[in-house]
Structure formats: C-alpha cells, structure tokens
C-alpha cells in the first residue's frame, strides 16, 4: 500500500524555540496511528502540520501526493482530504447540528443544498444523533457535540482524519460514546486516522501503530500491544505508569 502521509525531516519552530526536531514519519492508507506523549511534547503541533494549520519550518510534508511547502497553493486541496476533530469540538455556534455537518459539503465541495443535507442527516444518524439535527451546539452535551464534530469532518469525505485529544474535554461518562464512534469509523470505513489521545484502551484495540513522542521527537513506535508491554525507554515507562488504563 502507498503512503498517504509522509513527513520528511520536519522541523517546526515557534519564534526561536524549535518544538519538532527532524521528524520522519510515513503513514499508509487505512492505517490507524495513535500518538501519545507528555504535555508539550509536540503531538498537536505534529498533526496540525499534516493539514497545514501549522506551516513547517523546514523539511517536507507530503499528503495524498501534494508536497508542502513546495505546493503551498494547494493547501486547500490537502485540507479537503484531511479532516480534523478538535479537543474543544469547535462547532459553529450559529449553525444547527445538521447545518454544521452540511457546511463542508455545501461550501467546500460545492454540493447543492438538498444533497448536502441528505449526507448530513445520514452521518448524524450514523453517530446516533438523528433526533438532535435541529439543535444548536449550545443545546448539546459535550459528547454529543464531539460526535457532531466527527460527522462534520467526515462529511467532506476526506481520506484522512486527524483527532487531537478528542475526549480530553469530556466528562468521563461521555468518553465511551465518542470512542465508540471513532472505533466504528476505523473498522468500517478503512479511514486513515491519526489520533492523539491518552486512551490506551482505544490505542490497543484499534491502533495499528503507537507512537510515543517526547520533547519534539518520536521516541518509540510499534504495534500498540508490544510498545505498551515492552517499553524500551525510561521516559515511556514513566509515561505509561502515569496514564490511566480504560
């Protein structure tokens, strides 16, 4: 299978501080990659470089055969193929659930209104929120909002989905419903997923690969079960002893 994402010698600095150091990473189509690591290790920055929310300082990011930064003019094409789910949901507060989900197909994919609404309703149904389609984000619980956000990202029919700690802002009893939706996407659609999370159960169950980052570097990677069972570095051992097991 071909690599849908390739990071080649990627460095990223904010001002004078380099937060990603020479990252090399290839992700195959359909792969589910889980990224873990302590706070400030650069997990968010890394995945935000994939959809160009951050522009890399040096190196190359290739997504679906588009190379950034040399093809800067094609950033929108990259984003059409790379959806993102955020920790804080970031639903558009002035749009209802179904309008939020239909927004991408309508505006980014230029579909007509009824087609976009149909797609949106199907997706809301899939994430178990059919009866909430006319609610505004403010009227939904955190878990429901995050499921709408996942549907919104799916609606533009991307090849890759990025998740940045999708359950970290949720009350414990709502984490399960969101993880279930993510699991079903991974299993049913063969979607390429890059997930930053501390949910080790999720990583073990659906992850094809687990990456441990520390201080802007990939320190260890491998099959989730093996990496968790046999951590090589002291830092990963230490990290694993601190995260909860679900």
């Amino acid at each position: 299978m071909s690599n849908i994402i390739e990071l080649k010698n990627v460095c990223k600095s904010f001002g004078n501080t380099e937060v990603l150091h020479n990252i090399d990473l290839s992700i195959q189509e359909g792969e589910v990659v889980v990224i873990i690591g302590p706070s400030g290790s650069g997990k968010s920055t890394l995945i935000r470089c994939i959809n160009c929310l951050e522009l890399i300082s040096s190196g190359e990011v290739v997504v679906n055969s588009i190379s950034i930064p040399s093809e800067k003019g094609k950033i929108r094409q990259v984003r059409l193929e790379v959806g993102m789910v955020f920790q804080q949901f970031n639903l558009f507060p002035h749009l209802t659930a179904v309008e939020n989900v239909a927004f991408g197909p309508r505006k980014a994919r230029k579909m007509n209104k009824s087609k976009a609404a149909e797609i949106a309703k199907n997706l809301l149904n899939k994430v178990g929120l059919a009866e909430f389609e006319n609610k505004l984000p403010g009227q939904l619980s955190g878990g429901q909002q995050q499921r709408v956000a996942i549907a919104r990202a799916l609606a533009v029919n991307p090849k890759v989905l990025l998740f940045d700690e999708p359950t970290s802002a949720l009350d414990p009893e709502m984490i399960g419903e969101v993880l279930d939706v993510m699991k079903s996407i991974a299993k049913d659609s063969g979607m390429t997923m890059v997930v930053v999370t501390h949910e080790m159960g999720f990583a073990a169950q659906v992850g094809d690969r687990l990456i441990f980052m520390d201080d802007g570097r990939i320190v260890e990677e491998g099959k989730p079960g093996e990496v968790m069972k046999n951590p090589q570095s002291e830092r990963l051992k230490d990290f694993l002893s601190h995260v909860k097991h679900h």
Partner: peptide, 17 residues
Amino acid sequence: HKGLLEAGMSLGISRFQ
C-alpha cells in the same frame, strides 16, 4: 474564537467563505 476558524479552514473552505 480561533478554534472556529481552524475548524472552518480544516474543512478546506476559502478565506472568502
């Protein structure tokens, strides 16, 4: 909120949109 802009941009819409 900046997150809303990022959510919009990550859908692949134009600046005008």
